[in-house]
Design a protein around this nucleic acid. Structure first.
Lengths: 227, 227
DNA sequence: CGCTGCGTTGAGCTTCTTCAACGATCGTGG
DNA sequence: CCACGATCGTTGAAGAAGCTCAACGCAGCG
């Protein structure tokens, strides 16, 4: 069956028996969203959590004057919004589809029952939350201890690694979204890209990036040099 | 027995039977630290996690040029450094005792075994990690979307709430530490305290705070006004 | 063709940090 | 008991980083 098959490929359900996967599949429902559709808003009452079956979703906060901070971008196979399942009962941020997306929805009560009966599922969920905490801890470190050029350099190196440590790759989000993710604004990002270009650290051509000086970027990322 | 008694009072072990508490107590060891002692350093191999039995511990990151960001301050009853138990195997930050402190240490392998056998313990741990995620999400929001006066106002209001929503209370950390927690430096913090004083928002006398204008502070915290 | 969204660039300004100096408090040892 | 150094906090002046506002180029698309 289609849903069960998707679930079986996902970290969160690693090590579950076929019967246990059936139990999970039984409580899941599918939801479809178009680009820009809101999945939930900060403060909404939460009755369950989601997992990306296809597409991408951004989770973000907004300041009163409209500035947006992307906390996380989730792709296929990644669960999100688990927090209110285990602590509190409201979503602590907004979520919006960044493209046409299909999401699995897991109702809170039923899922908690499954966890009680299923230690591996609990362990997987603990691993997933811990992973998330690491991500946030990096984000805090970046926002507080690095300047924007350093954050951008880190992100470029991260993208490069994710693509197999090659020096040439494409941005998979718009620059405005990247700015929001890095905790800055498009204008600032643009200027820094320009500087990286003129310093021969990287060549930027639209969404196409070529890393020219990996060492230089690493120094920037570690705060050991400036632009 | 002393340890078991302490454990029984702690959220993480809520709902555990006496026998289960014994199981936990059996794997715990006690460690003592003086003010300023390092509990672990960023990158250290992690063989377990900790819980504060008495005293206080700060978990923090440091930038190459020495600036420090306090991620979290843990007091009695709070577990910390659980992340490497479930994801990765190295501590992702530094931890240091802020006063004479006694910590429980839980070895990773044994604790994981207990979790497997004990669904409530797993659920409690999930709740604890979720709580932590909420904390970080607030921290990210503050660092990225609020200016320092807003963060300070939030913190003062938080302290007030924690003391029963009264308008008069003491700072329980030094101003330098508070600065590090708010993602700024003592000089900046000092200037903002001075401004809050002259605007009659709060009176600051050493570590003693009196909130004079709660509404004004709330506006600041929400980014709806400036200093 | 003109609209709209994305990205870039410039000028000015705000916020925060840096650097330096100084006052107050506190514990220690002479 | 006082002097000393250390820690903590405050204040001033200057500078850096990033934001705001505004204008504009460019591509895709109805």
């Amino acid at each position: 069956m289609n849903i069960k098959n998707s679930l079986s490929r996902v970290d969160l359900f690693n090590g579950l028996s076929s019967g246990q996967l059936d139990d999970v599949a039984r409580i899941v429902s599918l939801r479809k969203y178009n680009n820009g559709d809101i999945v939930f808003l900060d403060g909404d009452a939460a009755v369950g959590f989601y997992m990306v079956a296809g597409g991408r979703v951004k989770v973000y906060k907004v300041s009163p004057d409209g500035k947006e901070q992307i906390m996380h971008i989730f792709g296929t196979g990644q669960p999100f919004a688990e927090v209110p399942v285990f602590a509190g009962s409201h979503y602590p941020a907004n979520a919006e589809a960044m493209e046409s997306s299909t999401l699995f929805f897991f109702p809170k009560k039923e899922f908690i029952r499954l966890i009680h009966e299923n230690p591996s599922l609990a362990m997987n969920m603990l691993a997933s939350l811990s992973q998330r905490l690491k991500h946030f801890s990096n984000l805090v470190e970046a926002l507080s201890l690095k300047e924007v050029p350093g954050r951008l350099a880190s992100y470029l190196l991260y993208l490069s690694d994710r693509n197999g440590s090659i020096d040439e790759f494409g941005l998979d989000i718009t620059k405005a979204q990247l700015a929001s993710f890095l905790g800055t604004i498009p204008e600032t990002l643009s200027r820094i890209f320009a500087k990286m270009g003129s310093r021969e650290l990287a060549r930027i051509d639209g969404p196409h990036i070529v890393i020219l000086d990996r060492e230089g970027l690493e120094d920037l990322a570690e705060g050991e040099s400036k632009l």
